[in-house]
Write a protein that binds this DNA or RNA. Structure first.
Lengths: 209, 209
DNA sequence: GTCTATAAGCGGATAGAC
DNA sequence: GTCTATCCGCTTATAGAC
């Protein structure tokens, strides 16, 4: 009878996907309160009441969008491989995060806006899932440092620096576009960005004699 | 007669300041469309119609808040001193930006949200004032590189990396608070952050033999 | 499952007394 | 300059036919 959250029919599933895709775009662009349901409905090529047949209300839709993009958001960090050389492992991680900023800039901005506005819908996730994951990776980073293969840096700040520099190209794309005329969808700009970010993070800016 | 924008009386000026302070907090927390005028009025200890006596409408108030925080936002980059050693000059710049993230986190988030949502009220500034400033600083950075005192990095990406890492502590404070339990208002955490960010940016992560 | 029509309520903005 | 009261448009959400 009710198709909410667990649509049984094929057509229902397709519609839910269409709605979630459309909602990601509108929420990332306008924030939660700025987003309009009929705007999302229009983007999903659907009437507003029809959309509200699948999602009880705006809040439920917003949470669903966050949840759906969450795994993708947490994914790259899980891959950080303790067995590898730190240079290679961190290089991979940076490349992975940067690719994510290129292919999913709206997801990045969605989370960024949510966190900047207090992370009210994410605080649960941050203090459980992400905290656990970060705790595990801290151990990896500490080992590299003990083995003298990495500078003596607090693992938190290392992770923050990588997150900040890589996500910046998605989150602040408007500013970067305004200054350079380009964004990560430009193949050459993406390659140059990858090279620069990797060099800065791993080798640092100042030449050592 | 009209006190709008140019209040003649002392009491008017004081009220305008109170409103702008309150508005910064509410806009930074909820974004433009999420912000409520009566919420700002309440924070400014004033009735809603009274607030609208000083600012014709919400849009005008928002623009006034952006304009007032703009100089502070552009300030640190102006100070980047070509005469200094790059290590010292960039170190100063990082410290300056980080201090700004500590003392004005709401201003940082206001601009971040504005840019992430398309920078519609800032595009003028970005492509004129900021672009000019960045152009000037690019020359400084290029000189340092030519003198072999700096790694061969595109100046744009260097600036982006510094902006990203330093502003991150203001913009993503909720996430950092959730993971570390601290923010930059903690004196020890601020000192550790400054040390870590400086080391990562200037010296890099990977130990060179 | 999808639509048209509409209820319900919020929030920006104004009128007008003081 | 500041207030109370109020208007009006806009947006969410529902009712009910198909």
């Amino acid at each position: 009878m009710t198709a909410l959250k667990k649509p049984k029919s094929r057509i229902g599933e397709v519609n839910v996907e269409r709605i979630l895709d459309a909602a990601l775009g509108v929420f990332a662009r306008h924030g939660y309160s700025g987003a309009r349901i009929d705007q999302i409905a229009e983007a999903a090529e659907m009437s507003k009441p029809n959309l509200l047949y699948y999602f009880r209300n705006k809040e439920e839709l917003y949470r669903a969008v966050l949840r759906r993009t969450l795994d993708m958001w947490l994914g790259p960090l899980r891959e950080l491989d303790p067995a590898k050389d730190p240079r290679e492992a961190l290089g991979n991680y940076i490349e992975c995060k940067l690719s994510y900023s290129r292919t999913h800039p709206m997801a990045s901005r969605l989370f960024a806006i949510e966190i900047m506005q207090g992370a009210q819908h994410l605080s649960e996730v941050l203090s459980t899932e992400l905290a656990q994951l970060v705790e595990a990776k801290k151990a990896t980073i500490r080992r590299w440092i003990e083995e003298k293969r990495l500078a003596d840096i607090d693992p938190y700040h290392l992770l923050f620096a990588i997150w900040a520099t890589t996500q910046h190209y998605a989150d602040f794309a408007a500013q970067i576009q305004s200054l350079t005329g380009k964004d990560l969808s430009d193949e050459a700009f993406f390659a140059a960005t990858k090279r620069s970010v990797t060099t800065i993070m791993l080798d640092g800016l100042v030449r050592h004699p």
